[in-house]
């Protein structure tokens, strides 16, 4: 564990708490993409189910449990509790375009060996899917052209999480000679997808202005 990864994990955890807070206090999931949240449940279940047969540390297991349960809870909030506030007509990104390529890539590029085939394929699938899981949310943002400030804080914390993993990988390369090309390439792509959002967040939201996309 190093400081970058720890801060990244905290940022990830914070983003989820912000989202739950936003939905519960406004009693609405307005501006939130159900499809992105569904993808995160798929990502976390396919990656973290290994907590059943792999023990790394108490921290690791508790975080995995948190991510699986909180993302499922968010799905419940959106799809059942506050379902009337959901507007499917603006959440139109097609999920097969993301899930199918991630599945194909995971069958081709993975770290599977004789001992661990399924778990390694599932792991790489979850990494590929996570790298693009934010697209339905960004697409929704693009369509509405604006966002509540709390939603932008959620997105910033979520983007900061993968951005912080980049110095973590550099640090691990320097100190342990450890390189994980699948995680690194996917992580770089995932972070790059936030570039536009980060730009508007830093130039507008941080200065107290409303998040609005240029017309």
């Amino acid at each position: 564990m190093n400081i970058f990864r720890f801060l990244g994990d905290l940022s990830h955890l914070t983003s989820i708490l912000i989202l739950i807070h936003k939905i519960q206090t406004s009693r609405s999931c307005r501006g939130i993409s159900y499809k992105t949240q569904l993808l995160y449940v798929i990502v976390f279940v396919s990656r973290y189910l290994d907590l059943v047969w792999t023990y790394v540390s108490l921290y690791n297991s508790l975080m995995k449990l948190f991510f699986i349960s909180s993302s499922s809870y968010i799905l419940y909030l959106i799809k059942i509790r506050f379902r009337p506030t959901l507007d499917p007509s603006i959440d139109t990104f097609s999920l097969p375009y993301l899930i199918i390529p991630a599945a194909i890539l995971s069958l081709i590029f993975n770290y599977a060996d004789e001992k661990a085939w399924l778990s390694e394929v599932l792991w790489s699938f979850s990494i590929y899917l996570e790298s693009v899981a934010i697209l339905p949310q960004l697409f929704l943002l693009q369509r509405t052209g604006e966002a509540e400030t709390i939603t932008t804080h959620y997105l910033f914390a979520l983007g900061a999480y993968r951005a912080l993993y980049i110095p973590n990988w550099i640090y691990r390369y320097a100190t342990e000679s450890f390189v994980d090309p699948i995680a690194i390439i996917s992580g770089l792509i995932q972070t790059a997808l936030y570039a536009d959002f980060f730009y508007i967040y830093f130039t507008k939201v941080i200065r107290g202005q409303k998040f609005e996309l240029p017309a």
Binding site: Y111, V179, D180
Partner: peptide, 10 residues
């Protein structure tokens, strides 16, 4: 240590 995923990363 190269070419395996980091099991300690989330």
């Amino acid at each position: 240590h190269v070419h395996t995923h980091a099991h300690d990363e989330l």
